[in-house]
C-alpha cells in the first residue's frame, strides 16, 4: 500500500467531490457533511457516470447520470440496482487527505 497526499480537505467541496487521475484510472473523492472522505472508482457501475460529480449525503453518492445510489463504504449499488465500484482507503490527518493505492504489480 502506498499512501499519496492529495491536498487539503477543503479542496473537496462538502457534500460533493473531486477526482484524481491515477495509473489505475480516475478515482472519485467524496466528502460528506461530517467531513468524512471516501474514495471510489470514478465510474458508476450502471453506465460509467462520473461519481465525483454526484450528490453526497451520509455514506451515499447519487450518480449524476441516472441517480443510482452507491454505498460509499461497501461500494455497492443500493436496491433495486445491482453493481459495485472499487473502494480505496482514505486517511485524513490535520486536514491532509491521503489516498491508499496498492502498488502496481510489476
Amino acid at each position: 500500500m502506498e499512501w499519496l497526499a492529495l491536498g487539503n480537505i477543503e479542496e473537496i467541496p462538502a457534500l460533493g467531490g473531486r477526482y484524481v487521475e491515477t495509473p489505475q484510472g480516475q478515482i472519485a473523492l467524496l466528502r460528506n457533511e461530517n467531513d468524512e472522505v471516501f474514495a471510489v472508482s470514478n465510474r458508476c457501475p450502471h453506465r460509467g457516470g462520473p461519481l465525483s460529480e454526484g450528490f453526497v449525503s451520509g455514506k451515499t453518492v447519487f450518480c449524476p447520470l441516472h441517480n443510482w445510489q452507491i454505498d460509499l463504504e461497501k461500494g455497492e449499488a443500493m436496491a433495486p440496482d445491482h453493481g459495485c465500484v472499487k473502494t480505496f482507503p482514505v486517511r485524513i490527518e490535520e486536514q491532509q487527505v491521503w489516498l491508499g493505492l496498492e502498488k502496481a504489480t510489476p
Binding site: 499519496l4 467541496p13 477526482y19 487521475e21 480516475q26
Partner: peptide, 11 residues
C-alpha cells in the same frame, strides 16, 4: 467549476 482533477498521480 473544478474543471481539472484534484491531482494527477503519475505511474
Amino acid at each position: 467549476i473544478h474543471a481539472a482533477p484534484l491531482r494527477r498521480i503519475p505511474a
